[in-house]
Design a protein around this nucleic acid. Structure first.
Length: 518
DNA sequence: TCCAGTGGCCC
DNA sequence: GTACGGGCCACTGGAT
């Protein structure tokens, strides 16, 4: 790289507009260049203007936003040069257009103060990556392989049929046609779309599990999932130079403004079951001297609901640090708080989360293992106790109907054209209208925290790295000498990323692997 | 090689 | 007269 070009990129005050700032940052970083004064990223801007689109490539934007086609190269022109020139021009024209649209939408703040700086933070996070214990994963995989073939053999023996356990169709034939298990166990499995056939999903097999075959299938599926998706896949993503996994954290793939993770997805690493947790335990610090530190927001979405609704019961609960699930349990079961048992609390927890997603009685009855009528009762009593939350939902719906979009705390918009549709489409748009301000605001708060933490890590010349972001949790690969200062700084920044009606609370954990830290 | 359908992991 | 918001991915089985 010629020094004058490096100097230009780093110090020139000429406005810099790019397409895909995250990638640009990574490419320049590999050449030792840190660009200053970025004004726009057309990839991110295109997504902010329309989060429903699935395409943001330049060719598409040229036609969709600037209404024209690519120029055709004449014989005398090098086609590559033409494309480069046209791209540069397209990017500048898009910049002008998107600047106008984003300021009209009042989304300019989020764009400039969150999304653009975040691209550079994510660039670094991706480059650092995270280390896994491939040998441990390998040995668990071997163990599972044996158990899987045992299970497979067992099912074949019990059913007297050689078939592919991974095939839904073959399984349906064995369970429902050959063995007629739905009649034996007297349950009515739900139907699936194709050919009026009966489902073999977990929920259905659970109901049939007094019979050994469905029970073994469930066990087989659980192990097979872990083996195929995690144990065998994760090691293939380890980069040969760094020895780390470098997942892509995407800024332009969700409708609410959350981040997503792909190649591989590191935001769905198992945690629920004991077997699954063994996968999580294989995420380790980059060197044996380091530790992993996890920082997660406690109930951030419910706190955002409290903030928006200003519900007195909710606000008081958080101010006094009461247990919100117990409080809800006392409301829906109509008993004093000190008589709430674990079971009741866990059902109340489902109700609390159900409200965020506009869950209906049908679904609620399934997750709480109660009757539909009782689930209906829970919902009624919930809104009786927290009546401002009902009006909050109405407020979100009214805004969506009137303005045609849902918006977040800091001004990101999600357009909801289906809000005026009928039936299922409308129901889904309404769900999004209620959920987006909550989920999207939580995402924004986390993004603000990440940017600031990245900045502080750099200012403090700290060696610890931020390596994962999982919606309400951040994971750090930390040197032990910095652990105390890092915990303090991360907690401080996350809890004060924005000031709401209720305080935000962050729990910190540490350990030799992600499972221990979480 | 691609796609829809089914199923399943996470917050 | 049914439905929980947001993601990514493995596998089957059929079409290309």
């Amino acid at each position: 790289m010629r020094p004058e070009i490096k100097n230009f990129l780093e110090n020139s005050s000429i406005s810099k507009v790019v397409y895909d700032l995250k990638k640009t940052t990574q490419v320049l970083d590999s050449m030792g260049i840190r660009m200053q004064g970025i004004l726009g990223d057309m990839l991110v801007a295109a997504h902010m203007v329309d989060s429903l689109s699935r395409r943001y490539d330049l060719d598409y934007l040229l036609g969709r936003r600037l209404n024209r086609e690519r120029m055709k190269a004449e014989k005398s022109v090098d086609p590559d040069v033409l494309v480069s020139c046209e791209n540069a021009s397209t990017i500048l024209e898009l910049h002008e257009l998107f600047e106008k649209q984003l300021s009209q939408n009042e989304s300019n703040e989020v764009y400039r103060n969150i999304e653009i700086p975040l691209s550079e933070t994510l660039a670094r996070l991706e480059m650092d990556g995270v280390k896994i214990d491939t040998e441990k994963l390998g040995s668990i995989s071997k163990e599972f392989e044996e158990r899987l073939s045992e299970l497979s053999e067992r099912v074949q023996n019990l059913s007297g049929e050689m078939f592919n356990l991974n095939s839904v169709v073959e399984l349906q034939n064995v369970l429902y046609e050959k063995l007629r298990l739905h009649e034996v166990c007297k349950v009515k499995p739900k139907k699936i779309k194709l050919g009026n056939r009966m489902s073999t999903d977990e929920e259905t097999l659970e109901k049939l599990s007094e019979h050994p075959i469905p029970r073994s299938i469930l066990e087989y599926r659980a192990l097979n999932k872990l083996k195929n998706t995690y144990l065998d896949q994760l090691p293939t993503y380890v980069h040969k130079n760094s020895g780390h996994i470098h997942s892509r954290f995407q800024q332009t793939s969700t409708a609410t403004g959350r981040l997503s993770s792909e190649h591989p997805n590191l935001q769905n690493i198992p945690v629920r079951t004991a077997e699954g947790r063994r996968v999580r335990a294989a995420f380790i610090p980059s060197t044996p001297e380091r530790i992993l530190l996890s920082a997660d927001y406690s109930q951030i979405e419910l706190r955002i609901v409290a903030h928006y609704s200003k519900d007195p019961t909710f606000l008081e609960a958080y101010r006094k640090n009461l247990d919100i699930h117990t409080l809800t349990a006392s409301a829906i079961f109509k008993i004093p708080e000190n008589q709430v048992d674990r079971e009741m609390r866990s059902k109340a927890k489902e109700v609390n989360f159900g409200l965020i997603y506009r869950m209906g009685p049908e679904r609620l009855s399934i997750v709480t293992h109660t009757s539909k009528a009782e689930a209906q009762e829970f919902i009624a009593r919930f809104f009786e106790k927290y009546n401002t939350i009902h009006s909050l939902q109405e407020r979100f719906l009214a805004q969506a109907r009137k303005e045609g979009y849902a918006s977040t705390l800091l001004g990101r918009r999600r357009y909801l054209p289906d809000i005026h549709a009928k039936g299922l489409l409308k129901r889904m748009a309404e769900g999004a209208a209620v959920n987006t301000p909550i989920q999207g605001s939580a995402a924004e708060i986390m993004k603000l925290a990440m940017i600031k933490i990245d900045q502080k890590l750099e200012e403090g010349k700290m060696e610890s790295r931020m390596v994962l972001t999982v919606h309400d949790e951040l994971v750090f690969d930390a040197v032990q000498e910095e652990e105390k200062e890092l915990s303090r700084m991360v907690k401080e920044v996350m809890e004060n990323a924005v000031i709401l009606e209720v305080a935000l609370k962050v729990d910190i954990g540490r350990g030799k692997n992600w499972l221990e830290a979480h």
